Simulated scan of single mutants.
Amino acid sequence: MKIFEKLFNPREVRRKLGMNQQEFWTKIGVTQSGGSRYESGRNMPKPVRELLRLVHVEQVDLSRVRREDFEIIDYLKENHPDLYKSLQKAVKAQEGESKDEAA
């Protein structure tokens, strides 16, 4: 078993999210039958694993992501690392507040 596969099982992720196979796999462009094969142990291509991780584990809404966003991130990391770290901390703090409010 590969390290990535040890980190999460797609069936477990799907079940924790309370989604059926159709909902879960369609979000990353995989048919329900293809997803079923992956859940049954068929080798999942790296791009599919990465999309699964981004969409279902990291909860990234791909419809909101643009190349420009990554260019800005790279620019901040290289030219203004302190600002990048400050923004990163602010986002984490905001996420923490959101979780506290939901509880």
Rank of each mutant, 00 (worst) to 15 (best):
R49W: 14
K46Q: 09
V13S: 02
R37W: 04
M44W: 03
Y84L: 10
F70V: 11
Q32K: 14
R64Q: 15
G34T: 14
E5W: 01
V65S: 10
E95T: 02
V91K: 11
R42C: 11
L7G: 03
L52A: 15
R11G: 02
V65I: 15
L7R: 03
L83E: 10
F8P: 01
Q88C: 04
R66H: 15
Q22D: 13
Y84C: 05
Q32D: 09
E78N: 10
K77N: 03
A103W: 01
I28Y: 08
L51N: 07
F8M: 03
R67V: 13
I3E: 07
L54T: 03
K92C: 00
F4E: 11
G96T: 01
S86R: 10
I28F: 12
Q94C: 04
R67G: 12
Q59Y: 06
L83K: 12
S63I: 05
A103H: 01
S40A: 15
T26H: 13
I72G: 01
P45D: 10
E68F: 06
R53F: 15
S40G: 15
S36V: 03
R42Y: 10
S33R: 14
P45G: 08
E50V: 15
E39L: 09
H80A: 13
D61R: 12
L83S: 12
A90I: 06
P10Y: 05
R14W: 06
Q21M: 12
D69G: 02
M19I: 03
K6P: 00
K46V: 14
P47C: 11
E12S: 06
V65P: 02
Q94I: 02
S36I: 04
G96L: 01
E68P: 02
H56K: 12
P10M: 10
M1D: 00
I73A: 14
R53N: 09
Q21W: 01
R64N: 07
K99V: 01
R15E: 13
P47F: 11
E95S: 03
R66W: 06
D74E: 15
E97P: 00
E5S: 12
G18P: 11
Y75E: 07
E58V: 02
E78H: 13
K85I: 01
Y38F: 15
K77W: 06
R15C: 02
Y84M: 12
I73Q: 07
W25P: 05
V60G: 05
L83M: 08
K2N: 13
S40K: 15
I3C: 01
P10D: 12
K2R: 05
I73M: 14
N20H: 08
A103P: 00
M1S: 08
L17I: 03
V30W: 04
D82W: 00
G29R: 10
Y84K: 03
N43Q: 13
E71N: 15
V57W: 08
W25E: 09
Q88A: 04
E95D: 11
P45S: 09
D100Q: 00
E78W: 04
L62W: 04
K92I: 03
K16Q: 11
V13G: 00
R37D: 09
D74Q: 13
R42E: 15
D100W: 00
E95H: 05
R37Q: 15
E5L: 02
A103S: 06
F8N: 01
L76C: 04
Q21T: 11
T26V: 06
Y75F: 14
Q32C: 03
G41A: 10
V60Q: 13
H56V: 12
V30G: 06
E5A: 13
G35M: 05
K92R: 09
R11I: 07
